[in-house]
Design a protein around this nucleic acid. Structure first.
Length: 586
DNA sequence: AGCACGCCGACT
DNA sequence: GTCGGCGTGCTC
């Protein structure tokens, strides 16, 4: 007998091995096998008869039984095709770490999935959604998999539900134990992140996606797909119930759930805070705090309540005030940020650090200043204005707390008197079609955190924006109807698919040339829109990374796969490495 | 991806 | 004369 094995390699092919006569293997089983002499873990995807004379043999199985069911293999195959990545890298990213040591781990076989009755994925919105989920999961008798966007939230939910963890925040042995406990029905509920979406569960299984809108559900790297899309597919194939929770769902999910009559409002603590907008015209240039926000800080701290100030920019960029030049990373083309402790300019993508320049390389000017209100600049300004208050970016007990939107998660509902959004316009004016969605998410989260009797102050140049109005009226539908109309007119998702194609190379000209080859190859396909690369400032002397976004129909991956496959397979170092990211989230 | 093979520049 | 740069090709 011969088995076909896939490895965690960027290769769209499997490798054939002979199965020693004393060994029994099944599809879905993990094995150790030698490839060019070095031992690698692979997954058996098929068994067949054939000439085994000139083949190497499988060394040994990692577990005594398949770790993946046929349904899970099928889901992996679909995901690899949809994301234009290899089956091996997709599957191996979705398995628990193997046991250490040189002996095959003996475990009970997985249950065979019985396809149940497919019901549409449900979207749970409203302040009571999480309480209701905990109640539902504690009360039901079937198995459940809860997928969180990150390890912190996985840890929190594992504690809440007293369930084992599958994510990388838990020790390897515990993760593996949780996987097999779930598969044998010994753990009724398990909690993980995207890497856990193939965990076998005895039917009837409930699948749960927490904070559905969160871009952390699609971190970079394999399996190169959003946890939501994997779970939707799994629920469909296995006939499982899928619950997706979010205060502010993605437009895509709202649109789908609304058409399937699957939006479930969960009521919670109702009285909503006052949502007040404050015009930032001319103010933000010199000072980050408008009069309404100043008054709110005074009122709240006087009555013993705390205030959080939210900055959407993590750090300031450096700009030449004479010619307007923004300093960018020559490698990544993103703006460099000013690192004050290091007195340097740093890149968030490639960790490049360079000393603060003396003058502008574009015009020679010497008037270089930080641009944008980051937490540090806001903190300094607030301390100056309110010298008697405790102001902090780290201490949650401070009277005025300053941080990114993530700090709202750490603060429980009702612990604040007010939230001030220093400026919403970073989100509304960036050339990203998800800006409205991100703005809604932030303002709604601020309102949920403040709750009854509090105040949310939004500093913005766009006080009439429908995202803000929707929060003021506590009415999600107001937002989504406008946003969906806009997306339909401009043919953005969910009415189309996007794909980001990038080339990494040692020089800009090489990257450009290679990207040109890719674009040329795509030219023959009808129904594609290729957006030209964003023009970069002249400070970018040599960018080693070029990218284009293409837009196409819902079957986009299948449309472009045959054309892109040769580029993805021959990874020519010098000429540039081509990477493809379907459905990018940022 | 990782590793071996292979063909041209600056060193003992 | 060699050491070593990285471009090319292959892995059952």
């Amino acid at each position: 007998m011969i088995c076909d094995v896939v490895f965690d390699l960027p290769l769209h092919q499997s490798f054939a091995y002979a199965i020693p006569s004393a060994m029994t293997l099944h599809p879905g089983q993990r094995v150790w096998a030698r490839l060019r002499g070095r031992p690698l873990i692979g997954v058996v995807i098929a068994l067949r008869d054939g000439d085994e004379a000139r083949l190497h043999s499988i060394e040994r199985p990692v577990e005594s039984v398949p770790i993946l069911s046929n349904a899970a293999l099928e889901l992996g195959r679909w995901s690899a095709e949809e994301s234009l990545s290899s089956l091996g890298s997709t599957l191996l990213a979705l398995l628990p770490p193997p046991a250490r040591g040189s002996r095959t781990e003996v475990v009970a076989p997985p249950p065979e999935h019985v396809a149940g009755h497919a019901s549409p994925p449900e979207l749970w919105v409203g302040a009571g959604r999480e309480a209701r989920l905990a109640q539902q999961l504690r009360g039901q008798s079937g198995s459940a998999l809860v997928v969180a966007p990150d390890r912190e939230r996985a840890a929190r939910w594992a504690a809440t539900l007293d369930a084992p963890r599958l994510d990388s925040g838990a020790p390897d042995a515990a993760r593996r134990a949780a996987w097999f406990a779930a598969s044998r029905g010994r753990a009724r509920i398990v909690v993980g992140t995207r890497s856990a979406v193939l965990t076998p569960l005895p039917p009837p299984a409930t699948l749960v996606l927490l904070d559905e809108h969160d871009p952390a559900h699609k971190p970079p790297g394999a399996p190169r797909m959003h946890a939501r899309d994997l779970l939707i597919r799994r629920a469909t194939l296995a006939g499982s119930r899928l619950l997706m929770l979010s205060a502010t769902p993605s437009v895509e999910s709202w649109w789908r759930a609304d058409r399937q009559r699957a939006i479930r409002p969960c009521l919670g603590t109702e009285p909503w805070p006052q949502i007040i907008t404050a015009d930032t015209r001319r103010i933000l240039r010199n000072h980050p705090i408008t009069l309404p926000l100043t008054r709110t800080i005074e009122d709240m701290t006087r009555s013993g309540r705390r205030v959080a100030l939210i900055v959407t920019r993590r750090s300031a960029a450096l700009i030449c005030t004479e010619c307007g030049e923004l300093f960018r990373c020559p490698e990544c083309a993103v703006p460099l940020y000013v690192s004050r402790p290091q007195k340097a300019l740093a890149c968030r993508l490639c960790a490049r650090v360079e000393p603060l320049p003396e003058h502008c390389p574009s015009c020679g000017g010497h008037r270089l200043f930080p641009f944008g209100w980051d937490a540090e600049r806001v903190e300094a300004a607030v301390r100056k204005r309110f010298p008697k208050l405790s102001v902090s970016r780290a201490d949650p007990r401070a009277q005025v707390l300053i941080g990114t939107p993530a700090i709202l998660r750490a603060l429980g509902p009702g612990t604040l008197g007010a939230v001030g959004v220093v400026t919403l316009d970073n989100l509304l004016t960036v050339p990203d079609f998800r800006g409205g969605e991100r703005a809604l998410e932030l303002v709604w989260a601020a309102a949920e955190t403040v709750g009854r009797g509090g105040r949310v102050i939004i500093q913005t140049l766009h006080p009439e924006h429908y995202a803000i109005q929707a929060v003021q009226q506590q009415d999600l539908r107001t937002f989504y109807e406008q946003e969906i109309k806009l997306r339909a007119e401009l043919r953005y998702p969910p009415f189309s698919r996007l794909c980001l194609i990038s080339v990494k190379s040692r020089s800009q000209s090489e990257a450009q040339a290679r990207l040109g080859d890719v674009a040329q190859a795509l030219r023959g396909i009808t129904g594609l829109t290729v957006y030209p690369p964003a023009p970069f400032g002249s400070v970018v002397a040599r960018s080693a990374r070029r990218q284009v976004v293409i837009k196409g129909p819902l079957g986009l991956p299948r449309l472009i796969a045959p054309v892109l496959r040769p580029f993805l397979e021959q990874r020519r170092r010098g000429a540039g490495v081509v990477e493809v990211e379907m459905d990018p989230v940022s």
